[in-house]
Design a protein around this nucleic acid. Structure first.
Lengths: 192, 192
DNA sequence: GTCTATAAGTGGATAGAC
DNA sequence: GTCTATCCACTTATAGAC
């Protein structure tokens, strides 16, 4: 057996959550989709909430892996670095639309506490925070409050990702790609 | 009796939906909170989905009313107009945090079809679309695809609103207000 | 219009065999 | 670790009295 039952459950849960919503998906339907008994599901996860939480952490970690390869790049030129991070993140969302959708559902739902979300953000997306701080120090970015800027970045990223997922034909359209990055980048800049 | 039972049901539904989530809120709990029998609820709304839909439309309309008083203003100067629209919308969200929360839940959940959401957007928020078009024609804004720009505006608005709702102490902090508008406005501008 | 009572079904979660 | 079988609280929605 190549994939463990636990992983099958997580995969099926992601698929169902992202299409039907988290609350609207029963544990029984997850087990059925994973070709597993409900007893097995509750053997691996003490309850539904823990299953959601574990899936959330796994996906957030997965996204963070898109950023790490770029950490070693030259950081003197901020814009090209930001552009490759932006495109990496967008490509990830386009490749795994279910992960993005679930990520969004989990963020908006009250299943995870604000604290849990903030912790996951700080741990996994620390690279982004450092980049914002660096840009503010060099004067490339406006000196706005960092929490506000971080939330704004996340919001613009989710917005652009959803657009590409809903309009697959435009995925590789350079005009659209440039436009989305331009808005993102300009938002961070100081008033000229 | 000042408020109709139907309105009591809508009010209680909004309150419960925004705190517990839509799926996680039972019709029985809505009826109980509204001090009404379940039979009464189903007399006014054929089913739960219709109740959600009706609430969604009412709230979207409520938001749109924040924009109409400004339509008659002088539109030669775009930035001050945009700033007052931005602040109006933020103030509305801060005053009615439950409405914003529900609005977000309904947008992300699959309860409303993409078409229904787009229709409501076009009808109620047409003012915003016209403003974007006008800015693009005058050269104040970059000529990005309008759908992309509209979604970006909505995302930044929701992001800023959530921040203020989660941090009530900063509601009237001018530094934060200016920062959030600066990001929003800059995102729309062309590359300098 | 509003209520009570209840139908008919689904939910998360558990016990215990293998 | 995985399964079958099952508990029972809770769900949406309806019927019919007032």
């Amino acid at each position: 057996m190549k994939i463990s039952k636990k992983q099958q459950i997580l995969d099926s849960a992601l698929s169902l959550f992202s299409t039907k919503g988290i609350d609207a998906t029963s544990t029984a339907s997850i087990a059925k989709a994973a070709q597993v008994a409900t007893g097995t599901l509750f053997h691996h996860f003490p309850n539904k909430q823990r299953l959601v939480h574990q899936l959330y952490l796994a996906i957030k970690h997965d996204l963070s892996l898109q950023f790490t390869p770029l950490q070693t790049q030259d950081t003197n030129e901020l814009e090209p670095l930001a552009k490759s991070l932006w495109n990496n993140a967008l490509d990830w969302a386009i490749q795994y639309p279910q992960k993005l959708k679930f990520f969004q559902l989990a963020s908006v739902s009250q299943l995870l506490s604000v604290q849990e979300q903030a912790d996951a953000m700080a741990q996994e997306l620390g690279v982004i925070m450092q980049l914002i701080t660096k840009g503010q120090q060099s004067g490339d970015f406006a000196p706005h409050p960092i929490e506000l800027v971080a939330l704004n970045c996340q919001a613009q990223y989710l917005s652009a990702s959803n657009f590409y997922i809903d309009n697959p034909a435009l995925t590789n359209d350079q005009h659209y790609r440039d436009a989305s990055f331009c808005m993102f980048w300009n938002a961070l800049r100081p008033l000229s």
